[in-house]
Each structure stands twice: as C-alpha cells, then as structure tokens.
Design a protein around this nucleic acid. Structure first.
Lengths: 350, 350
DNA sequence: GGACAGCGGGAAAGCGCTTACCGGCAACCG
DNA sequence: CGGTTGCCGGTAAGCGCTTTCCCGCTGTCC
C-alpha cells in the first residue's frame, strides 16, 4: 500500500534501472520495447522492479527524447454544440484507436479567434491540428491564421480543415458539399410546392454559413424563385440565434412560406420560437435545417434537413491529417462529403 | 515569408540566443519572464530575434524543466452526450481562463474502463484528472480505479469526481444531490396525482443511476406508494437505451401512470418511442427525466426534470481539483450541488 | 584456428528548456 | 577608500527519457 502522505517524487526509469541492477539503457529497452532484444532474466528483473516501484513512464520526456508527440488538437467553436460534439466524438474515437491523445480547444463566441487558438496550440507540439471551428472570412484573421498554420506546417505539423477550404495552405480538407447540399435542398422544397423563402443565414462572415446560403439561393434561382423575394436574416449560429432571428422575419404568413436555417441548431431554436408564437412548423409554416444532428431524432415536428455524417467527418479529419504525405500525384484529399436531403414532417408537400 | 518546402527543424531557444548574441539563460529569461531583470537592449535584441526566426516555445520541454505541467484531463463517458458535453464546456471555459489545456478522454460504452482511462492519462502528467464518467460500481474496477488514483495522487496529482463519491481517495468531489433531487421529484409527481410509477433505471451498476433510482423510490415510499408496484427496467444510459427500455414497460395503461428516466437523454428517447406508439407524453402518459440538459428547450412536450447546473458543475470540478490543499480543517469540498425540480408539460396535474 | 559478423549490455550524448550558482561591476556605506 | 550589497550576464547542471556508439562475447565459416 502506498502511503498517502506528502507527494513523493515520481519514480523514474533510473530508479527502476538501479533497483533492477541494470543500466538505464536496458531498462528503457525493456519498458518501451525497442528493436533490440534484452535477455529474459534482465527483462524480468526490470519488469518486476518497475511494477514494484509503481513506475509510470513520463510521456513528455519520451516525446522530447524521441522528438515526436502523441497528441492531436481539435479546434471547435463550442463543445456543447451538438454539431461540434458529434465531430469531436468521431475524432476522439479515431484517436483512441491510434492511441493518440486529443486536446480540445474552444474558440467560442467572443472567445479566442482561430489564429489565437492555433497559436496557443503550437507550443504543445501536436502531431496535427484539426480545425472544425467555422472559420470567419474576416481577411485579417484569415491572414493571421494562414501565417500560424504555415509556420506550424513548416515544422512538420499536419493540419486538416473541416468544411470550407482555405487557399494557400498545404492543409488537407474534409470538403463538405455545403453549397451543393443546400442547392439540392432548395430544389426539393420547391418541388414540394413552397414558393416563399426566408433564410436564417448565421453570421455573414462565416465561410460555411455563406456557402449554404449561396447554395440555397442558387437552388431557388434555378427553380425560378426570384432572389429579390428571399429574405435573409443574419445572427449567431446558435440555438438562441435561430430563436431570435426567426422572429425578425416578415413574410411568414404567406401560404407557401418556408424558413431555411443554415444549421439544425438554429432551425430547432427557430421552431421553438415559432411554436411559442402559435405557428406550428409543418402546418402553418415550413422549416428546414442542415447537418442532421443526432438530437433531431427527438425533436418534433421532425425537421427536414441535409444529413451530414458528422461522426465520420471527425474520423476522416483525423485520418486525413495523419495520412502519408501524398505520393506526389494524388492529393491527400478525401472524397468530398456529400449531404443528403432528408424531407420530413417540418416541410410537408403542399 | 517562410519557405513551405521540407519540414525545417524547429527553431530553438538556443537559436534565438545565438542569433541575438546572448546566452541561453538570458534568452530564456526574456521570453518567459522570470523574476530576474534583463537590460532593455538585450531584451529587445532577444525579442527581435525571436520574432524574426519565428520562435515558438516548446511547452513539453518547459514543463519538463520546470517540473510542472499545464494540462488537465477530463474523463467523460461520451462527448457527444449532451450531459457530458455541457460539463465539458464548463471545464473548458474554466481551463482557458486559467490558461490550461484540457485533454478529453472518452470511456464510451464498451470502450475503456475508467481505471484504464486514468492509467492512460497518468503518463501525460496532467495537473489534475476530472472524472465525469459515471463510475461503475463493479468492485474489481472500482478497486483498480482507486489504486490508479492513489498512485497518481501520491505523485502530486489532483483528482476530482463529479457526482458520486468514492470512499478511500483523497479526491475532491463535486457532490451532486442525486438522491435528494430524485426524492423531491417523486414527491412532486405524487402531489400532481400520479399513482403508478415505472423507472428507466439505466445500468444497474452505475453509482449515479442507482442514487437516482433509490432517491426516487424513497420519495415514492414516503408518499405512500408501495415499492412492489414500481416497475424498474435497466439498460444503457443513452437515448436509444431509453427508447428501447420504455417499450419493455408493462403498466403504462394505468390512468395515473408516470415514467421516470434517470437521465434526460433516456427520457427523451423514451418520449419519442411512446409517441411512435401513439401515446402522447403529457396526455396519455407522464414522463420525467433528470439533468435538464440544454436541448430540452426544444423538445416537446416540455420535459419535467430535475435541473442541474451542468456547465457550472464542470467549472467547479476544475476549480475544486486545483484548489489549494485544504487548510487542514475545512475539507476542500464545494457545496453540494442541488437539483431543482422543474415541472413541465410532460407531467400535467391530474 | 583466425577473421568476422551478430548479439546484447552499458556509457554517454543529446532533446529544449529552466535555474541554481558564479563572478564582474557599480553603487553605496561608514 | 576598502568593504559590502545588489544587479545582471553567463556557465552549467539538471528534468526523464531515447539512442548512438563502443565493446566484449559467441558462434560461424573457410
């Protein structure tokens, strides 16, 4: 039984070695298993001593000596957001399969900018940085981010983006077909008979949000809906953002009215707002979202959306970042992730 | 502009020092700010060189040299679960305020056991380990967990639990009044007129789940409901677990029937299952949960539950773990976290 | 039987940083 | 004016590991 009094200094490999009466080198070889063999008797002695002393390897020292870390970093907007947490779960699962540790940083609303998050991560020397936080298009921040990433990559760090691309970085991208998905959604909605659209567009400077808005607008245009008739409201990409934004919309009384929120999280907030106003989604007004976050299973009316394999996207982001540097020709980009339109109760055929 | 070709070796402090023509010690003092002063001219030279060379400190080396890490670890069951992700958000926020990095490990269903998670974390030498994963009562695992934690604490590591306590560890606990909360909920439900109760009890070997079941049962007993009339079904603590478990229940046709799920996540799954069976919660059958996870805002009918300040619990867990070793007398335990009963549409008065 | 490869143990040189400790110098005291 | 501080650079000893050498030993092959 270990005494539970004052913090005893850690047991080091050297302690184990001397207790086992072998050299440090031998102890190291036994404990971490190098290419070199160690005689059974010595090896047993080392193992025994290690167990007896309660030795725990110091990974910091190990990665220093080896010059390679076992950590990957994930940058998300808000870990409590179902979109990000689904991705994080994928990353986490993939990482644990590869025996990697994942450190999660939140940029949060009003928190760190993405380039600050990356700057804070660099000193930890992660193997890879995965950027899931929706990047702002703000050009200054963008510039700084690219600068940080360039420095990081120049030192051998791997980077992968989720969602939109960023020109000018060697980073790999899990490219999500936001634009195409939104376009298809728009077409489907027109096909159902909707004629009057409003968009909860999220922050106007967010790449992903913009791609979805643009795609949706394209789809509408291709279906003969005049852009001028489409109302767009911008606001935070959160549940409360959706809740608030939908209340600013004007043309909801129109018979063929349909609200598209660029994110399920917003759509869900919007539906609740509408209900509390006495308009039932799927009856008095149509609502559609994007992402197909897991919680949609339990929200009613069931929300029409564009389904994204969020968990897999997380897995892919990690694998992509760690993939071998492309054998020249084929760029290390995963196949694009396509969204599939799921029509549900919130947008019944008219 | 940095060339983006092959990975250049990292710039080290030594590089900066020699470029600035000062000693390594001076460079170190300038860059990390020690107690010692450095002459303005030297300091400027160092700063300039550092910037010019694109120096990024290596925190691994730093914590090795200093003997103190800047990391805390959080162990959760599943980061995609809203309960855990809400707590994680709190931890994350508190950590970033303290300039700490948080690494998140998932025990997951069928994944690592908790003691394995801790064992995997120890080599990383985190400042603290926060255990949010609902601990299994399985005595072997419990034993192993305590052993790991004892070793970790003996070397100066801090530990805090969220939820239930574990005897025999020096760990601090964010004590959640699961039992009392459930008891009060039961009383409230009886007061509303319900007479026939079923419980979705989660895994039977889970401390938190059990405390809630027991508390609820106590409340029922104190309200004169015979324990023998209460049906309990066990199953996974997930949305699907709740969905499946509720379908096994028998006595739901009774007029005063009410289902209590030990977790909102389960309750929400159960509600969906009931609806798909044609029983509307809040009309044909009452349902109550526990936690008040954020997504309840958008689930209908609004779910009766016991509200817990999840985000704050995360914050507290971190602060508690890092709090100064108690000045002897007062144990470093935060005030208990009380749950408050929130009666909503899913349990209308009869 | 001698040259030689192969094996496995140990000494020691780092990995990138921090921090005693030392020593030169200027200021300050009686 | 000698002695004592106090400042502030630099030198070097680690922090806990890994890994390159080096070296003695066996076994092998002509």
């Amino acid at each position: 039984m270990v005494s539970r009094s004052g913090r005893s200094p850690s047991v080091t490999l050297a302690d184990v070695a001397s207790h086992a009466q072998v050299s440090l080198a031998t102890a190291s070889r036994v404990i971490n298993g190098s290419t070199r063999q160690v005689q059974p008797d010595l090896r047993d002695r080392v193992l025994a001593s290690s167990r007896l002393l309660g030795y725990v390897v110091d990974e910091q020292a190990q990665s220093m000596a080896r010059g390679a870390s076992q950590t990957v970093a994930l940058v998300v907007g808000d870990i409590a957001d179902p979109y990000f947490s689904a991705i994080a779960a994928g990353v986490s699962a993939a990482a644990s399969r590869l025996r990697l540790t994942v450190i999660i940083t939140t940029t949060g609303p009003g928190g760190l900018a993405e380039h600050e998050a990356v700057a804070a991560l660099r000193p930890k020397r992660p193997l890879a940085i995965l950027l899931a936080a929706s990047r702002h298009l703000d050009s200054a921040g963008e510039e700084l981010l690219l600068e940080e990433l360039a420095g990081y990559e120049a030192r051998g760090g791997r980077v992968s983006f989720i969602g939109a691309d960023t020109g000018g970085s060697a980073a790999r991208v899990v490219r999500v077909q936001n634009r195409a998905g939104a376009r298809e959604l728009a077409r489907s909605l027109i096909h159902l008979g909707y004629t009057r659209f409003s968009i909860l567009g999220g922050p106007s400077d967010l790449a992903t949000a913009r791609a979805r808005v643009d795609g949706f607008a394209e789809g509408l245009a291709s279906g003969g809906i005049a852009a001028s008739s489409v109302e767009i409201v911008h606001g935070p990409l959160t549940r409360d953002g959706g809740h608030a934004a939908v209340l600013e919309l004007q043309g909801l009384n129109h018979p063929g009215a349909c609200v598209f929120a660029v994110t399920d999280v917003m759509a869900v907030g919007a539906m609740t707002a509408l209900i509390s106003q006495g308009r039932m989604p799927g009856r008095d007004i149509a609502v559609a979202g994007f992402d197909d976050i897991p919680l949609l299973q339990d929200v009613r009316p069931a929300l029409t959306t564009v389904a994204l394999p969020l968990f897999d996207i997380g897995v892919q982001a990690l694998e992509l970042a760690l993939a071998d540097p492309s054998p020249d020709s084929s760029s290390p980009e995963a196949d694009d992730v396509r969204g599939v339109v799921r029509l549900r109760e919130s947008t019944p055929p008219l």
